[in-house]
Amino acid sequence: MHEAHEKQLEELLAHPSVWRGRSRAAVETFPTGFAALDAGLPGGGWPRSGLVEILTPHPGVGELYLLLPALAALSRLLPARWCTWVSPPHEPFAPALAAHGVALDRMLIVRTHLPLWAHEQALRSGACEVALAWLPRASPRAVRRLQLAAEQGRALGVLYRSQKFAGEASPAMLRVLLEPLVGAGNHGARLHLLKSRGGSREPIDLTWAPAAA
């Protein structure tokens, strides 16, 4: 009798929406393309749907390289869905993306003065595998909306924000702080998981892959 209850309880706790303390949540993920990062992330990769916040001290520290393998993989999935870029700071350079194996005709660039609205629409629509957004500011409420929209549209939402928001509470599923590796000969960055459901507490060092040439 007692054992049967135990078993039932175990089944209940294995449900994806139940998360206990630092135990690893059972989320659907896909590989990031970096073995070290996969090992540190709950579920062994980026969440399949949900919001990821990437915080950087300043642009150009590798925030895009971090996602490149994922973008390349997602843009080749069938049936194809969009990879949407909402108000990126500069023009995504098509030849470089293509050289990293990203399928260009799945890319959708949105230039807007309403990035929050556009990002939510993209995530909620169900037409995007991933939607990246660069937001100057976003309240926790807005981030919560994005998180819900991403779950509804089964999309990976990525929010690029400044490091100065690291202290704020955030409803995002995963928060990542990216620091450049200064002085190292190779091209890479150090990554801290600020918030994750059971991810690594240690910083993770990553090296960016050069373009497939």
Binding site: P89, E91, F93, P95, A96, A98, A99, A212, A213
Partner: peptide, 9 residues
């Protein structure tokens, strides 16, 4: 793909 490195932005 470019034989040289190209920036993403």
């Amino acid at each position: 793909g470019a034989p040289f490195r190209r920036p993403l932005w």
